[in-house]
Amino acid sequence: MHDQQTVTSFPTAGNPAPPPQYGTPWAGPSAAPTAVPPAAHPPAANPFAPPAAGSPVPPPPIGPEGPGQVPYGYPGTGWAGAPGAHAYAGWAGGAPLPNNGLGVTAMVLGIISAAGFCLWPVAIVLGVLAVIFGAIGRGRAHRGEATNGGQALAGVICGAVGSALALAFGVILLVT
């Protein structure tokens, strides 16, 4: 049918399976098993096994506080900190993160105001808010508290355009 062996049962302790002989044809179920050559290397010792009786066991670490103590550690935590340090004591930290929320808010509100000017009452309110938030965001960018002065400016421009379009649309609707 085919040239590959078919597994009919699993090997057991009394009937070990011979290793596959690649490159040699299958002799069939009546052929005698070939002898397995002995291992070239003895099996390695288990590195995870406990030490044998009588083998030397290294002593526990000895810190400045005495044997078995965690050096410079915090009681009960198992964490070894710096000498005399407490959690975050004396750590200056990094630079504060930029406060970019108002610039992003101004840009989003301005885009919504300009794109949705046909809902003129909502667009006027969103445009005014975009101009206000954008002006505050630009002030923060000039002071160095924010890094998105361009987004805040886009919010001011889109908010002003959206408010103007909404106002014009509202006037046209009310006059006609």
Rank of each mutant, 00 (worst) to 15 (best):
A45Q: 01
P64W: 00
I124T: 06
G170N: 00
L102Q: 04
I172Q: 15
F169K: 13
P75M: 15
Q151T: 09
T6S: 09
V128N: 04
T8K: 08
G149R: 00
G149T: 05
A39H: 00
P43F: 01
G155F: 03
V108L: 08
S113Y: 08
A82W: 06
A32M: 13
G134R: 03
S9N: 01
G93I: 07
T34W: 15
H142T: 06
N15I: 12
L109G: 05
P64E: 02
P50V: 04
P20V: 06
F48T: 04
V175C: 03
A135F: 06
A154M: 08
A123Y: 00
W79H: 14
P56S: 04
Q69V: 14
A80S: 14
A44Q: 05
V57M: 03
L129R: 05
G101R: 01
A40W: 08
A32F: 09
I112H: 08
L102I: 09
P60K: 05
V7A: 06
A40T: 10
A160D: 05
R140H: 13
D3I: 07
Q4W: 00
E145R: 12
A85G: 02
V70W: 15
P38A: 11
W120R: 10
A32G: 12
A92Y: 01
V36Q: 09
T12H: 10
T77I: 10
M107R: 07
N148Y: 10
G28W: 04
P96K: 12
G150P: 07
P16T: 04
V36S: 13
T105D: 09
M1G: 10
A152Y: 07
M107Q: 06
P25D: 15
A17P: 06
S30W: 14
A52C: 01
G150K: 11
A17H: 13
L119E: 10
I136S: 00
P98L: 14
Q4E: 07
V36K: 07
G150H: 09
A13Y: 13
I112W: 08
A123M: 05
W26V: 04
P61W: 12
G137N: 05
L119D: 11
G28S: 08
S30Q: 15
W120P: 11
P71V: 02
L167T: 13
P11M: 05
N15P: 02
A17D: 02
P29N: 09
T24A: 10
R143Y: 03
N148M: 14
G68V: 09
Q5G: 14
P16A: 01
I111S: 03
T77A: 08
P56W: 02
A53V: 02
P37G: 00
A166M: 03
G103I: 01
V131W: 06
G68Y: 13
P16D: 07
G110S: 04
V36G: 13
G101T: 05
E145A: 12
L102C: 10
G137T: 04
L173W: 11
R138G: 00
Q151S: 14
G93W: 07
G76H: 06
L129I: 11
L126A: 07
G73W: 10
C158H: 11
A89D: 14
N15L: 10
A39W: 00
F10Q: 11
E145D: 09
I172Y: 13
R140W: 12
E65R: 15
I157V: 15
L97Q: 07
A45C: 02
V70K: 05
L165K: 02
P42F: 11
P61T: 15
